[in-house]
Design a binder for these strands. Structure first.
Lengths: 315, 315
DNA sequence: TCAAAAGTGTTATCCTTACACCCATGT
DNA sequence: ACATGGGTGTAAGGATAACACTTTTGA
């Protein structure tokens, strides 16, 4: 009754990777040029079709990424399988086949571009997600357009639902900004027609990407922002040794919000996430800082070691 | 460079659903008979291939489930796409094609069996996951076998790693039992060869299922056990009105651990998850209880409304 | 001497946990 | 009367958030 025979129009299965890094206080994603896309959408994630020669999905993904970017992947995690929205494709002849894409999140340590791949800031694609310098100015225009969309609903009931949703995802009165809701915000902008992928003429809501790659990237950012709180995944992005200040600035870059310094240090220390090395560095300006390293043993000790973000800070 | 043309041996894509419910203090999963499987593995999840006629993955899943079980699905959420382990299948002729399966979690309110589908307790497949009556006796035999597996490694370094992993996933000294690690525990048992799916001769580690459906079910249980803590998904399993005692027993059934009554009630109340109705019921034995209903407004008010399990209780 | 970043300490507040106890019904 | 489950109050402990302050370097 299950696991049936191959159908005539078998689906296409693609693999795509959101490869993330953090260099110089800026979160990055590895992009490749994509031909044959509408204007302004010539950037995409490394991707390629699943081939019979690939032993597993993940191995297939690693092969594609290395071929397209020269980057070797370390930490890899499956995100989501997309296939629901505009992902049908006419094949040879008249048949209409599904086009699925299994998206992955990958975290890498160093950013060395290869071939024609380039590292870009996350916030090129999601400018409103960076609140490290306070509420970003581009949000004003965006909220105005969103409010317009909410008011444009014919049904007043629907209009109220839209307003509620805007408040919930973008943090209106009462509930504050939740940095994990990257995907929900993108999907709202998509539905409101404010992104080029959905027909918008300008880039108020950030730069576009090929296919639904920006949706995949949004999924990846949200997943990572959530995961750093209960798993020590930040250290996949750090060099072997680092200062607490550097660690904090990377976490701030990823989450897009500023943290309270003293509490952050205490948290990291008492969670046993890091241990001191002998060395210090004077490269950070000001008083030299002790170099730390990740304590692998914490994985055996604590149930959910991570960096519960200790609330905001002014500046 | 990405999204290439259809290859000769296109992959097979299946859809599968772990449909969960809770009736009479017992967590249930909807199963269907599967023909052509080894002895003892004739039960499986509702599943079927993705077809060109399906508008989306999720709609395809709903269609298969209704056809096979008569059950209409409400809440549905994608879990994971499996394709990595023993999931290659010889097709017609000599070609070797991938066989993927996109697994979903579904939560339904009522348990009314249809066709030859049957509701089974979760703990038929994962007896060691039910700790409501304290540490289950079957764990003794299981831990002994696991320790044997750890000791059987040729490399002493590997042996230590295995022991660490057993302690981490099954909760040895220090770190306690973590009810969310259902998948990690199943995968450990799989690697240790203690489940029929991996060649074991007996059922110490629970009843087997067809294909890798037990792995999917483990993924679903872990996801649900985690999600009830920060999203009000339990209410998808409850009738429209219920008593706080019933709600607590459902949460206990899902998580497999007992909760502290007073704290659970306070938590539910102060989170604003429920509101009182006029009615009371005397069907629970003892003093009649007030019937409550889910407060939908909480979704707009709180960032992550859920039932943070307020630690254990003796009995 | 001053700016900048590292690093230490302390206190108020809230949430979690645990314990003790009363209430209303059926047998 | 008593067993059973419903329901309320309150005190101890730990984690979080916010504050002030010292130390060490380079310009």
């Amino acid at each position: 009754m299950s696991e049936a025979e191959p159908s005539a129009a078998a689906p296409l299965v693609g693999l795509a990777a959101a490869i993330l890094a953090a260099t110089l206080d800026e979160p990055r994603v590895l992009t490749v040029p994509v031909a044959g896309q509408p204007a302004g959408r010539g950037e995409g994630l490394p991707a390629g079709p699943l081939e019979p020669a690939h032993p597993t999905l993940e191995r297939g993904l690693r092969a594609w990424v290395e071929r397209q970017t020269g980057q070797t992947l370390g930490y890899v995690e499956q995100l989501y399988t997309f296939g629901d929205r505009n992902r049908r494709k006419g094949g040879k002849g008249d048949e209409d086949r599904h086009a699925l894409s299994v998206a992955y999140l990958a975290l890498v340590r160093e950013a060395r571009p290869a071939a024609d791949a380039t590292w870009q800031s996350w916030y090129r694609y999601f400018p409103y997600e960076d609140r490290r310098a306070g509420r970003p100015p581009c949000l004003d225009a965006l909220m105005a357009r969103l409010d317009g969309w909410a008011g444009a609903a014919t049904d007043p009931e629907e209009s109220r639902r839209r307003s509620d949703r805007i408040g919930l995802t973008f943090g209106a009165a009462g509930s504050g900004w939740n940095e994990e809701r990257v995907l929900e915000r993108y999907e709202l902008l998509f539905e409101a027609g404010l992104v080029p992928e959905a027909g918008a003429a300008d880039d108020v809501a950030g730069h576009a990407m090929a296919f639904d790659h920006r949706r995949m990237l949004a999924t990846a950012l949200g997943r990572l922002r959530g995961k750093i709180k209960y798993r020590p995944v930040v250290f996949e992005l750090m060099p072997p040794t680092f200062t607490l200040g550097q660690l904090q600035r990377v976490v701030e870059a990823l989450s897009g919000v500023l943290l309270h310094k003293q509490n952050f240090r205490r948290l990291v220390a008492q969670q046993g996430l890091v241990e001191e090395t002998e060395a210090v560095t004077a490269e950070t300006g000001g008083r030299p800082a002790r170099l730390m390293r990740f304590r692998r043993e914490v994985l055996l000790e604590r149930p959910a070691p991570g960096l519960r973000l200790p609330s905001g800070r002014a500046g």
